[in-house]
Design a protein around this nucleic acid. Structure first.
Length: 283
DNA sequence: ATTAGACCCTGATCGC
DNA sequence: TGCGATCAGGGTCTAA
């Protein structure tokens, strides 16, 4: 799924279709995604105007004029498709309904937002906007990578004493929100840190350096329009998304791209997920 | 309190 | 072409 940069890209793609517009009809084709959809979701969305689209970690948050916020998580395979409006100079017609189109928002003016999610690890919920921070899915999240609360001293203190591998620690959304399996590998490669290294046993200056590198890697990916693999698409359905490539992720057996390094990218499994790294320049 | 592993679900891909 | 095993960017929950 989309990690933070992809979710941010989706949010930006949805904004012109949603911000300022009324949801005329919410079509719900299935009552549960990962969890049951909220009670009376269609009724609660119908007639609401979307004031603003925000992002928190990997969640998209749509503030409604009803005082509620629609919370959306794309899981692993969730996609948002925009149709029925001009996008990038072209009019996107409504596509034929697809398998796994679980929720369709029919917007004032004719645009449609289609949430498609084959694996159904995604989620949607409605929460009172003024109580959003206490929502069970958001309450435990760590700081935003680009926020002021995420800084060198914080990360050093947060990882102190932790015996878990740094790869696992950075994947933990309570430590920092928004990193996923791809970007953790990319960050650690850039930092020259072995993903197996115990988080609490890394010298403070190196941990401190991770803060800037995390921001750098995420910012570059957002800049690139959110990178993607396989099944992920930009909200407008265009495929220009598959261009971004990674230095180590999914490059097992390929030469390390760090200048001057002659190592070979290796794949290992950590807490059930693939990690890619260069044993030669990551220590 | 931490940490590893199972589990949720469907689809694509790979080896035979 | 078919078939099973494996893997996939998410996260939660349980049990050690």
């Amino acid at each position: 799924m989309p990690e933070l940069p992809e979710v941010e890209t989706v949010r930006r793609g949805l904004a012109p279709a949603m911000e300022g517009f009324v949801i005329e009809r919410a079509q719900i084709n299935r009552l549960d995604l990962r969890w049951p959809l909220p009670d009376r979701m269609a009724e609660r969305l119908t007639g609401a105007r979307v004031e603003r689209l925000r992002r928190r970690s990997k969640y998209i948050l749509a503030d409604l004029t009803t005082g509620e916020t629609l919370l959306i998580h794309l899981g692993m395979s969730g996609r948002m498709l925009v149709s029925g409006m001009m996008l990038g100079g072209f009019h996107h017609d409504h596509p034929a309904p697809q398998k796994h189109d679980h929720v369709v928002l029919h917007m004032e003016g004719g645009a449609r937002i289609t949430f498609n999610d084959a694996r159904r690890f995604g989620a949607m919920d409605l929460v009172r906007t003024d109580r959003e921070a206490a929502h069970w899915l958001l309450a435990g999240l760590g700081p935003e990578p680009f926020g002021n609360a995420f800084h060198e001293d914080y990360l050093i203190a947060r990882l102190k004493g932790r015996a878990t591998p740094i790869k696992t620690a950075l994947l933990d959304q309570r430590v920092v929100a928004g990193l996923g399996n791809i970007y953790v590998s990319e960050v650690l490669h850039r930092a020259g840190i072995d993903p197996r290294r115990k988080a609490g046993r890394i010298a403070a200056p190196r941990v401190a350096g991770l803060v800037a590198l995390i921001r750098e890697v995420l910012a570059e990916a957002i800049e690139a329009g959110g990178s993607s693999l396989r099944d992920h698409r930009q909200p407008d359905g265009e495929l220009g998304y598959f261009q971004h490539s990674f230095h180590v992720y999914d490059r097992e057996g390929e030469p390390c791209q760090k200048p001057g390094c002659t190592g070979t990218v290796q794949r290992i499994v950590q807490s059930g997920r693939s990690s890619f790294f260069c044993p030669s320049c990551q220590r």
